[in-house]
Amino acid sequence: MRGWVRSVVAGVLALGVAVLAGCGSAAEPASGGEGGGSGEQPAQVSKLEEIKRRGYLIVGVKADVPGFGYLNPETNMYEGYEIDLAKKIAEEIFKVPGQVKFEPVTAKTRIGLLQSGQIDMIIATVTVTEQRKQEVDFSPVYYTDGIQLLVKKDSGITGLKDLDGKTIGVAQGATTRARLEEKAKELGVTPKFAEFPDYPSILAALQAGRVDAFSVDGAILKGYQMQDPSTVILPEKYSEEPYAIATRQGDDDLRDLVAQVITRMQESGELQKLQEKWGLTGQ
């Protein structure tokens, strides 16, 4: 009997220690100002300085969203509107092109990676929300999208109102679910939700009949609709999703530089041109 008690106590203690250690290390960078996290550098080094010393910019991008951030399997290169934006910003910092490294992120991983300093910024279809503003800094908006539904053509579904009791596949950590729940309540329907770690899983779930609709921002859906011609994007939009570049709170010099670049590209019409280049203008 005593052995039983002892092993439980030991297990709980071990975990407790791990938790406390975790708390300690997480609290340190916050109290030490905006140090990059590595103890070697003096705490005063700004983010921009840190990036320049490193010699390249690390940007969290989507690898599975054609038109925005997509790792083209044929060339093994990242391409898309957001990739072009990242290249512009890197060029602004280093005055020469090509000093940028892309790190693939998902809706679930991106904020954590930014906060832990593993990436310098996120340009990965991040919707600006009040809640996220508490966690990260945002640049001016570079694209506005809306949540839409992708369904099978032969399903007969024409909008959210047809999805009462049916299942909608969404991405973990995305705002999609909360927005759709609001809209569904207004319409008086109660759909079920299934969350998946990435978009290809949701498309696979739709194809397998596991979910009746795949929902995320329209521009992201477009790429998947093209992959599977038996599906169709429904025209109704259920939200306004303003996309902006996220930087870590405290990295003020980097945030300001990013804001400058986006504002300038907006005014010169360069943003519009890039959107046309990637086919993102057809609403």
Binding site: G22, A107, K108, G112, Q172, G173
Partner: peptide, 12 residues
């Protein structure tokens, strides 16, 4: 846990 943490940002 996955869903809750990525919504609240409280992974730890």
């Amino acid at each position: 846990a996955d869903g809750w943490s990525s919504y609240n940002f409280l992974y730890r």
